[in-house]
Amino acid sequence: MAPKSASSIKSTSAVQTLFDAYTSQTSSRLKFIDAFLVFLILSGVLQFSYCVLVTNFPFNAFLGGFSSTVGQFVLTASLRSQVNPENKGVYKEVSRERAFADFVFGSIVLHFFVYNFLG
């Protein structure tokens, strides 16, 4: 998922530049969303490693939990991309408010199924 993990002598400087560019160029709203995304990744990694290392016994519960993090991640990432001012030309018909409404609708549907699946 994260190419950052690839560590190479050549690319350390690139990673450093990337980090600097990110902190300077990104608005605080987007950083807030990114923080949530990082949290979701951590949560997903945790659940997945539990499933692999300990047990996958209630498999539907695992799938429900994991899908909720993955689903929430992509929905939030979609929201991030839609409200990113750089992408204004890409989403001609999706305003910021519309993007947030879509996000809420998608999340509600997602968690309806998650709740149904936890068993």
């Binding site: 899908s67 993955v70 689903g71 992509v74 929905l75 990432a77 979609s78 991309s81 839609q82 992408n87 890409v90 989403y91 998608g106 549907v109 997602l110 199924f113």
Partner: peptide, 15 residues
């Protein structure tokens, strides 16, 4: 590839 493709595919696939 565009953000539109990402949004459409990911929201469809995840849910």
């Amino acid at each position: 590839f565009s953000g539109r493709l990402y949004v459409a595919y990911c929201s469809w696939y995840a849910i």
